[in-house]
Amino acid sequence: MAYTTLHAPETAHGTFFNLKSAISSIFDTFGKVRQFEALSALSDAELEERGLKRSDIARTIFLDNGLS
């Protein structure tokens, strides 16, 4: 009778990669939050100089993957 393994156990390398990926994601999120706070602190005129509207800040940072 033959047996099939559907999920191979993670190696130490795979576990480290997953941890590294999770930490990287956390730091990326904190960076986006800081960017959001910095842009939110600007006046409407300063935002306009950057080609942004206040209502576009969150979409620009969190959905469009940052400023160009």
Rank of each mutant, 00 (worst) to 15 (best):
L63T: 01
I26P: 00
T60V: 12
A12S: 14
E46I: 03
I23Q: 13
T5H: 06
T60L: 08
G51Q: 03
A8Q: 14
S40D: 15
D56N: 10
S43F: 00
T5G: 08
T29F: 13
K20N: 14
A58E: 12
I23R: 12
S24A: 09
I57H: 03
D64F: 01
H13E: 10
T15K: 15
V33K: 11
F27K: 10
S24R: 07
I61D: 05
R54Q: 02
D56V: 01
E48Q: 15
S25C: 07
T11Y: 05
A45V: 01
A12T: 13
A58R: 15
R34P: 09
T29A: 14
T11K: 02
S21E: 15
I26L: 13
D28A: 00
S24M: 06
F36P: 02
L19W: 04
T60R: 04
L67M: 14
F16P: 01
G51F: 03
A2R: 15
T11N: 04
L52I: 08
T11C: 00
K53Q: 02
T11L: 03
K53D: 04
R34C: 12
F16W: 08
A41C: 09
D64A: 01
Y3H: 15
G51R: 02
T5C: 09
R50A: 08
L6C: 04
M1T: 11
R54S: 01
D44S: 04
E46H: 05
R34L: 14
D28L: 03
L67I: 15
T4M: 11
I26F: 12
L47E: 11
F62N: 03
Q35F: 02
A12K: 14
M1P: 07
H13K: 10
Q35P: 02
A41V: 08
S55G: 08
A12M: 10
